[in-house]
Every structure is written in structure tokens, then in C-alpha cells.
């Protein structure tokens, strides 16, 4: 029997964290291209801007996910799936358009 009951707090929390991180990562890509200081901060963090970017993304995902999971958030699976898909489509499209323009 299929149900639409809310997801557990870990799946909900980290699902929202994935959406937040994907959007943040896309924005960070553009910001570091516009502001060299931001790219320099990422270099200081990881030795290379790309390494620093990856570290920031993974840490953000882990921290936001843990906080939200511990707060006990519960979300509907279908809505969370739509949010994840929207964030990924936004991220991919925005990056391609950005690098076409710059």
C-alpha cells in the first residue's frame, strides 16, 4: 500500500540542506568570478579556489542538514523531490548561462 506520509527528520533535514547547498554553490561560482577577494578566500581555505569551493559546499551540506535534522523537520517526499529537481535544474542552467556570458 502506498502512502504519502512525511519523510523522517534526517531525510527531510538533509534534503533541504541539499537544495540550499546546490543554490549556494551556484551563487558562489558567480560571486568568486565577480569578486577576486571571494576566490582568494577559497584559495586560503583549500589551497585552490575549486578545492575551497568543494570544502565549503560539503561543510554547508553537513552543518545545515545536521541542524535541520536535530530540529526535527519533516517534509513531504514529493515536495522535497520537486525542490531538489528545481535546485539542480536551476544550478545546471545558471552555470551554463553564466559561463556562456563571461
Amino acid at each position: 500500500m502506498n502512502t504519502q506520509e512525511p519523510l523522517g527528520h534526517w531525510t527531510s533535514g538533509f534534503g533541504i540542506a541539499a537544495v540550499v547547498t546546490i543554490i549556494f554553490s551556484t551563487v558562489l561560482t558567480c560571486v568568486q568570478d565577480i569578486y577576486p577577494a571571494a576566490a582568494h578566500l577559497l584559495v586560503l581555505l583549500g589551497g585552490h579556489h575549486w578545492t575551497g569551493h568543494g570544502i565549503v559546499d560539503v561543510v554547508l551540506f553537513g552543518v545545515v542538514g545536521t541542524i535541520l535534522a536535530n530540529k526535527g523537520v519533516h517534509r513531504d517526499g514529493s515536495r522535497l523531490a520537486a525542490a531538489v529537481a528545481s535546485a539542480a535544474i536551476f544550478g545546471g542552467s545558471a552555470l551554463a548561462i553564466w559561463f556562456l556570458m563571461v
Binding site: G15, I22, S25, H53, G54
Partner: peptide, 14 residues
């Protein structure tokens, strides 16, 4: 490619 990679990376962790 190098920046889009973070999308499947995060999804793979999730």
C-alpha cells in the same frame, strides 16, 4: 563542468 560537479556530489552524499 568543474562547478556543476558539486551538484551530483551533494546529491551522491544525500
Amino acid at each position: 563542468k568543474e562547478h556543476l560537479f558539486f551538484v551530483p556530489l551533494i546529491l551522491s552524499l544525500y
